[in-house]
């Protein structure tokens, strides 16, 4: 079992008062709680803080933790012989002390077991249903996968009782179907795929928090996809047809003559599909680009155009000056 320094996690001395513990927890929770801080959905940092507080705020658990002795954080250790507090012992069903039983145990599971044994959990009221744990985990999906849908395989570390009833973290691989038309910020709920419930308690759920991976061409807003469409000045004036490498396959976009910069050209229903509804659009935002190194002939033609054209793109400036 790996030692975790709960006092260090909360930034406390080992003789901290109950009030100090509460204050330190509140300060850190305010900073790191995933709902408040907007950190990743899993909130790893907050989990550590919550685990430390759950043990240190409870005088019995704290006494049991202190009796483990102080070790460097992360060091492999076993509880000293005779260490046996509440339900937190090596083998809940056995009589003897079995130090080997601690080898692959997590400190958090040990103290959770202690709480369950004492406070109306498994042992005190064996028939009481206990719901399985819910899990939140972020998933990053490519735009192509969001468009077509995909199947992902996710590794999830889940606490489960072993044959002797001891809680162990086991890695379960979940096959997850991401439906077509999944969007940024969406939450996918996998019912009953989290921790196992006990004594008739429901199995926990897994909540997937979707983010879309950045795409080199498209930017998603809900189901709509935005794309920069650079045009040469003559394409904007004369109109053209452009092949768009859309996620669902190449599409031909007609640029009408006289298209100005900033105009949004819409390819209706070619964005991300929407379950039971109308798909989003692709919106190509026009930019007028110029040749970075025009050849002499190009310059000559431009100069001729400048001479011939009566177009004044700043006519409205003159109106302002005349006021």
């Amino acid at each position: 079992m790996q030692y975790k320094d709960y006092y260090q996690t909360l930034g406390l001395a080992r003789d901290a008062s109950a009030d100090d513990i509460k204050k330190a927890y509140r300060k850190l929770a305010r900073q790191h709680h995933p709902d408040v801080s907007g950190e990743a959905a899993s909130g790893e940092k907050f989990k550590e803080i919550g685990e430390a507080y759950a043990t240190l705020k409870d005088p019995e658990k704290r006494a049991a933790y202190d009796a483990l002795g102080q070790q460097p954080a992360g060091q492999e250790f076993r509880p000293p012989p005779g260490w046996n507090y509440g339900g937190a012992r090596a083998a809940p069903e056995g009589d003897g002390f079995d130090a080997h039983a601690f080898e692959d145990l997590d400190l958090a599971d040990l103290f959770a077991q202690m709480g369950a044994a004492r406070g109306g959990g498994f042992r005190a009221r064996p028939d009481q249903p206990v719901a399985g744990e819910d899990f939140d985990t972020p998933i990053a999906v490519s735009l192509e996968d969001a468009f077509q849908g995909t199947t992902l395989h996710l590794d999830l570390s889940v606490p489960e009782p072993d044959a002797q009833g001891r809680m162990r973290h086991v890695t379960r691989t979940l096959e997850v179907r991401v439906p077509p038309g999944t969007v940024e910020g969406q939450k996918l709920r996998l019912r009953g795929r989290g921790g196992k419930g006990h004594h008739g308690g429901r199995d926990g759920d897994v909540y997937l928090h979707v983010t879309l991976k950045p795409h080199p061409l498209f930017r998603a807003s809900g189901h709509d996809l935005y794309l920069d469409l650079p045009l040469a000045p003559w394409e904007a004036v004369l109109g053209t047809e452009v092949e768009i490498p859309a996620p669902g396959g190449a599409l031909l976009l007609t640029v009408p003559p006289g298209t100005r910069a900033g105009r949004k050209l819409r390819l209706a229903k070619r964005g991300l599909p929407r379950a039971g509804g109308v798909a989003g659009d692709i919106l190509a935002v026009v930019q007028i680009d110029v040749p970075p190194h025009p050849r002499e002939r190009e310059k000559e033609l431009m100069a001729e155009l400048a001479k011939v054209s009566s177009f004044n793109p700043r006519a409205h400036f003159a109106k302002e000056t005349a006021r």
Binding site: D35, G38, G185, R219, S221, D228, V285
Partner: peptide
Amino acid sequence: YLDRIEALEQQLRHLQAQLPA
């Protein structure tokens, strides 16, 4: 507050999507 933050984040994503790269 969380609802408002979510709505603002959505609005921000919408505006960012329209900004040229």
